[in-house]
Nucleic acid binder design. Sequence first.
DNA 1: GTGTGCGTTGCGATGTGCGCAACAAGTATT
DNA 2: AATACTTGTTGCGCACATCGCAACGCACAC
Lengths: 268, 268
Amino acid sequence: MTDRPRAPVSAGLRRDLEILELLARPEHASGGLGVSRIAELLGREKSQVSRALKALESEGMADRDPESLEYRLGWRLYALAARTAEARLTHLAAPYLRRLVAALNETTHLCVLRGSGVLTLLSVSPTHAFRGLGWEGVTVPVPMTSAGRVLLSDWAPDTLRAWMASWLKESPMPGHPRQRPPDIDYLLREIAMIRKRGFAAVDEEFEPGLVGVSAPIRDFRGGIIAAINVSAPKGRLGGHLDEAGRRTLAVARELSAKLGYHPETRPH
Amino acid sequence: MTDRPRAPVSAGLRRDLEILELLARPEHASGGLGVSRIAELLGREKSQVSRALKALESEGMADRDPESLEYRLGWRLYALAARTAEARLTHLAAPYLRRLVAALNETTHLCVLRGSGVLTLLSVSPTHAFRGLGWEGVTVPVPMTSAGRVLLSDWAPDTLRAWMASWLKESPMPGHPRQRPPDIDYLLREIAMIRKRGFAAVDEEFEPGLVGVSAPIRDFRGGIIAAINVSAPKGRLGGHLDEAGRRTLAVARELSAKLGYHPETRPH
DNA sequence: GTGTGCGTTGCGATGTGCGCAACAAGTATT
DNA sequence: AATACTTGTTGCGCACATCGCAACGCACAC
């Protein structure tokens, strides 16, 4: 307020995205939301929300049910999303994940590093599972998950320390308050092991009773762009976690090859 | 310029979407675009484009390659869309099913793969038929129904074999003891035909006297997420099953487009 | 050296979004 | 029926964010 030297703010964009993010929350996605409720949840003036939503609707970013006057996400968002790099990767990866599911009979995920979290792009579940649906589009903390560690595993140690320090500052563990992140040296040792054997395994570090393995996906440039993850209750997968890791790694290597990766193309 | 009586414009949003739309163009999607080129294509000041893109990037709507300084679409679009795809489907499908009902005068269903069966999310019947209470919430075995076969139809043959094997183990045909599942080679041939002509048809395989056609629904990721099915007594629909299939396919394509599916999103 | 291309930044004038308050329309309460 | 609630939209003045120009930093070419 006093001496902001230059405030490169884009208030409108942030407001619009807050609204869209709210519409995307799973608990609202099915029903839709009205103006007043959105304004209340966001702590904004309903007049602003009304005008913003009208604009969003006229641009196709939100749809409105003419009867109930409730808003939901619009067609244009989906059209745009189809063109992202993530969509292409997801599409290529789907058959590989299905093969892994057929082999292991456990749910598999395709994950990427997004900002300060691990974003799940795609989940594929075996026949006996209730339903995937849970994790797509959701982010989980990086350092406690096998997928997150794999995604960090080609970084230099000092880069990693710096990243981890800033991550700790900005990530107050929303939703998982009891979890404490691992200390950095432990993480570095884990990552060294990941590089050695090619895949990561975690045993109840992220969720009690849950184990998981992950292996990296590389593209033609040689860097890690994504991870394939398998997660399951410890009772089912705990006994043969190592074998699951090797199979995951094998599938990840095939997908990497499909993306143009050659093992000698390692990054600098 | 002179007397805009009331201008409820949201210039910022429009500008941002113009930029995103440009980044989404297939010819740029792989390469990325620089600030000057975007400004030129849009006829805007490059300073504005620079600032707008900085904001978009900070919100995750655009990604920037630090080397080439080129922008492309960001992860957040994908994350927003992925979380709501399912809810959006159930909400959007109803009018399309009704249109199909109006055209064919037969009951139509919206089906998804859930667990080891085909779950019907929504049924729409013509006025003369019994209302409701038909199939919503009910699951039927995958391999004997046209909807089930459609839902499997973008899987690779070996994945399909593995899936089918585990399905046979865990699905003792509850409720339909006299039905024997088709052998796998037959199923593979059927699926090959589905891929070729775009829809599936079954003739009394699931229930004596019952015929049905199904066509796939794809979302912005390109994968099959649901199927539209038309089922009817053979006496009524059997004569023009092929035409019904083509009409179902046409409606399914429209719905897929509404969900953000672009045909060129298909894998090779 | 000077030429081009790129992307970023300072700054004043302009125009847009902000927030209050009034309004319209619908639904429950008496 | 009249009232008191909803919920969503709109008018309007002021403040401030954005626009567009111009200058700048930087890289590369010749």
